[in-house]
Amino acid sequence: MAQIKINNLSHSYQKNKQILKDLSLDIHDGELLSILGPSGCGKTTMLRLISGLLPMQEGSIIVAGGDISKVPVYKRNFGMVFQSYALFPHMTIFQNVAFGLKRKKLSKSEIFEKTLSILKTTGLLDLKDRMPNELSGGQQQRVSLARALAINPDVLLLDEPLSNLDAKLRIEMREEISRLQKKMKMTTIFVTHDQEECFAISDRVAVMNHGKIEQLDTPQNIFRHPKTKFVAAFVGYENFVPKQWAKEHNWRYNDIISGSQLTIRPEKIELGSNENILNGKVLVKNFLGNNYQYIVETELGRMKVDTQQENYEINDDIGLSFSEKSLIELEDGD
């Protein structure tokens, strides 16, 4: 259906504020690709460029072999789900979903049938005569998704669609998105700042920082083998160790990457008094439910440790130990 090739995309606001820097990205036909990054990293700008809501400055976007850089937004036939839902307040749910179909050359009965069918697929049939302000946030977002899918778009764009929902609805809604996306085999770009929700449903994830893609890979690979310090920090690696220091202490690691940093997740560190690799003093102790989190001051700075062990208190001198296999080498970012 639609493969997307993004070539050398650059974008800046005003003269000196560059948002995207020479960014290239291939999105496979039918895959769900997430763009993960903190606010201000350029992910929303990229999505708006793909959608056509923002005029392009440099680079090109090829969809299914055709250059769409100069195609106006209303002719692109992309579906988009907005963070604010953006339902038309003066139309019923049925009218909201049917609105896009009225632009297509379809008979009235075809529009009616198609709208009903998409309402059924998204579980909104009972709500079809309600007005948007009579719906809950989750229901509104469902309508927004139905409206985007109704026009049978070549590409589905999701702009932080879950961030206005509460925790429980978020999980429900992301599963709904994943189910519909797989069913319709639709090329989908999902923009988010939440690594958990994007790992759960994505085929691949592009981690963005300062207008560049730092790493593009499957969720599993990104989680297990973050490439840069930024990616590692973003997916929950809290502790960083200089390679030079590790070498001096005869730590074993693969040493195949040229970077200068190693990283380790907080739950991979054990606390104990013998066979220590690193000594420190407990600064903070927090109960997190499943485990405790200790922040330990060491000669390498503060290290975070997530553990079941609860018998250490603030100011206790303790030793940190971990399996050397848990250490991950990082490339130097810029």
Binding site: S51, G52, L53, P72, V73, Y74, K75, R76, N77, F78, G79, M80, F82, Q83, S84, A86, L87, F88, P89, H90, F99, G100, R103, K104, S144, R147, A148, A150, I151
Partner: peptide, 27 residues
């Protein structure tokens, strides 16, 4: 008025003039 509702209308195929009359004016 949420600016996104105009964008939503553009996305589903309405140009800016029709969107103005069908979405902005009624709201």
């Amino acid at each position: 008025l949420d600016k996104s509702i105009e964008e939503a209308a553009w996305m589903v195929g309405y140009n800016k003039v029709i969107t103005f009359f069908k979405i902005v004016i009624p709201n």
